[in-house]
Write a protein that binds this DNA or RNA. Sequence first.
DNA 1: AATGAGCGC
Length: 443
Amino acid sequence: MAQIQVQHQPPVTAPNGVAANAGGAPGQFVSTSLYVGDLDQNVTDSQLYDLFNQVGQVVSVRVCRDLSTRRSLGYGYVNYSNPQDAARALDVLNFTPLNNKSIRIMYSHRDPSIRKSGTGNIFIKNLDKAIDHKALHDTFSSFGNILSCKIATDGTGQSKGYGFVQFDSEEAAQSAIDKLNGMLINDKPVFVGHFLRKQERDGAWNKTKFNNVYVKNISESTTEDDLKKIFGEHGQITSVVVMRDGDGKSRCFGFVNFEDPDAAAKAVDNLNGKKFDEKEWYVGKAQKKYERELELKERFEQSMKEASDKFQGVNLYIKNLDDSISDEKLKELFSDYGTVTSCKVMRDPDGNSRGSGFVAFSTTEEASRALAEMNGKMVVSKPLYVALAQRKEERRARLQAQFSQMRPVAMAPSVAPRMPVYPPGAPGLGQQFLYGQGRHLHR
DNA sequence: AATGAGCGC
């Protein structure tokens, strides 16, 4: 069972702090430092210590936490005094439940390049639900050294019937795929293949055959006949169109339909990126309208996420702003504390200040100093409110939490009237407020 | 049907 060779000489420490691979089997790793992942939120340092100290001499443990919130990041480290104990712990304690959740142990590897590369990573599906992490590990360990392995589970720990094994080499992964794909395990034929990210799978999907080709960035003078001539070299064309506006002016894109999908693919390969009349053509598979919308939406959401990641910790939310404060004035107010990279007063459609805005700094240090110094400061007529800007989801989560706090107060009668009915002279706004919230919660 | 997470003092 133990696959990690025992070291008889002291480990040689590499410059990065990880013990060098002195004498281990090829690709195997000799170290005293373990990474422990998939930790339940509430697992503590002492729980880690108590568990891991049972199988060897633990030097130190830690559950990693967010610096400001102290929330567990769901992983930690255990350091042993010798590599044999670390190897034994990995072998014996991997997948032990802690707070009812299986922990996943790996050697600590600070260099993220192996993880990021995804080399040797495989995906297994159609697994019998009775197969657990350990069984998966045992089944696949004969093909090579496993760095990490797990079964996808639901909240209760029940298998979802698929899982992942990361080997330390591509060869091991390939031989596992060759030997096990399609084999029966517990009477079920399992799928075993390389792990693919979503977009890589989409890429494979996009390689499905197509006849219709989209061409854009053509010059305004390019005609159907020009397209026919250029695209026609790659195969039989069934239709060509250059899209035009009401006046017949080219919109500089068009479609070419081929009889044979292989010809369409060849045309894309050969013509995409080529220059005609100084214009670099984009030539690709024509998308259905919904496909294009989906792609644009995904791209938009991606860039929004990147933008909000970029602002994480450097963007301040300001409210209680005097109406006279402009973007420029706001920037001026905050530029004492650092480099203001963007600045905006929120306005209604008529251009009136909404009394709130955002100021972004180039570093989190500047932002937190500005927050500390400017929050509550009198500006023109009133004290500023300054806080770290929240991302949309965070704000939604917070508001939701507030709503649920209010629920006991806002509770509607067990049989709620369809519409709020106000007795004459009743404080209508209060009623409306309460029912409005109740409805929102049950949306 | 299903394609994770992820490295410190």
